[in-house]
């Protein structure tokens, strides 16, 4: 009998083997053992080709996470039919002691009609607060200049780690909204709470901001200087260099480290800006028209990076855009700012 099929020792909730070698175990409850496994796999930096897991209970969410973690065979003591369907569709070999139609929990109900493993994975991580992103809650917010409101939000809520695309006509107030979030201007009325705190009480560097850039400047600034702008000053030099290096690598921009930022293409600049936010450990990412000056290939690379952010660090992402392709590619929730009567 394969090792992963052996009964779990009392108190253990998850065993994971690579072939016959036990590489990970956990005694946490709900879906947390699987999130711990995700971190373990990420930190180990090794590629495991034959992952087999033994878990106590398997619903549709657990099945989706296992598929995302590239587990080939899984044994559940108790599995739901909905989980079985998803595992079968994705060619994961399933073993189980007993099977029921569905687990009696909210999480199972939430994903009963969702077949996209990526979406289930993202949503469950948001629900479990596994990302670094913070909740954004906006209520009765009027934004504008000189006490004259140009746009009013009744209510807008973005869960920590979730993403939102904001679209709207020119002049409707999208940039004013960004300026309000960045505290460059004060709201006229209403509240913006981030992680249940007013924005003026937030830690500095919480928000990473990437703006559209039209012009190059004649004065040099190196990519390394741009990326290290938001770095924690208390870190040692070695830690700083490691963070800069890993951030640039994640954004596939390490080869640009010594280049002058203003000599880069639009796509390269966006990669560097994302690395800056990564280095800053921004919990909320605001991108203002990120694809404005990008060619098709750069746009596609940016989309891949944004998706990786969404699945990896999971900051809360707010994108202001006119770009329909970007909207269609990302398939994220959209908020449309529409003309309002005075």
């Amino acid at each position: 009998m394969d090792n992963f099929l052996q009964p779990l020792i009392e108190g253990t909730t998850l065993n994971v083997f690579n072939g016959d070698d036990l590489i990970f175990k956990s005694s946490s409850s709900w879906l947390y053992p699987l999130f711990e496994l995700e971190r373990f796999l990420k930190d180990s930096n090794l590629t495991y080709s034959n992952l087999c897991a033994h878990d106590t209970t398997g619903g549709r969410a657990a099945a989706a996470i296992m598929i995302k973690l590239n587990i080939k065979k899984v044994k559940f003591n108790l599995v739901s039919e909905r989980a079985k369907e998803l595992l079968d569709e994705n060619n994961v070999k399933l073993f189980y002691d007993s099977k029921i139609d569905k687990l009696k929990c909210k999480t199972e109900d939430l994903f009963q009609k969702e077949n996209n493993v990526d979406i289930i994975f993202q949503k469950i991580k948001i629900r479990a607060k596994q990302g670094i992103g913070l909740d954004v809650n906006i209520k009765d917010l009027s934004i504008g200049y000189n006490n004259k409101a140009i746009y009013h939000f009744n209510s807008l809520e973005i869960k920590g780690g979730d993403a939102l695309i904001i679209e709207g006509d020119n002049g409707i107030g999208k940039t004013t909204f960004i300026k309000t979030l960045l505290r460059e201007i004060e709201p006229i009325n209403g509240t913006i709470l981030i992680d249940n705190k007013p924005i003026n009480k937030l830690d500095t560097k919480t928000i990473g901001y990437i703006k559209q850039e039209k012009e190059n400047q004649p004065f040099p600034v190196s990519v390394k200087e741009v990326v290290s702008m938001g770095i924690n000053k208390k870190l040692s030099k070695a830690e700083k260099n490691y963070l800069i290096d890993t951030s640039l690598r994640k954004c596939k921009a390490i080869s640009l480290i010594d280049r002058n930022y203003y000599s880069l293409s639009g796509g390269e600049k966006q990669k560097v800006s994302l690395a800056r936010c990564l280095c800053q450990k921004a919990k909320i990412l605001i991108l203002d028209e990120p694809t404005s000056f990008l060619d098709k290939e750069s746009k596609s690379q940016l989309i891949t990076l944004l998706k990786a952010f969404r699945n990896g660090e999971m900051p809360t992402i707010i994108i202001i855009t006119h770009d329909k392709d970007l909207k269609e590619e990302l398939k994220w929730d959209t908020y449309k700012m529409e003309r309002q009567n005075a």
């Binding site: 901001y209 200087e225 702008m229 930022y261």
Partner: peptide, 18 residues
């Protein structure tokens, strides 16, 4: 130095960095 570079780079981004 880092603060000065960020102000030179972009004042809005510098503000967002605190």
């Amino acid at each position: 130095f880092n603060n000065i570079v960020s102000i030179f780079f972009d004042k809005s981004i510098a503000r967002s960095l605190g």
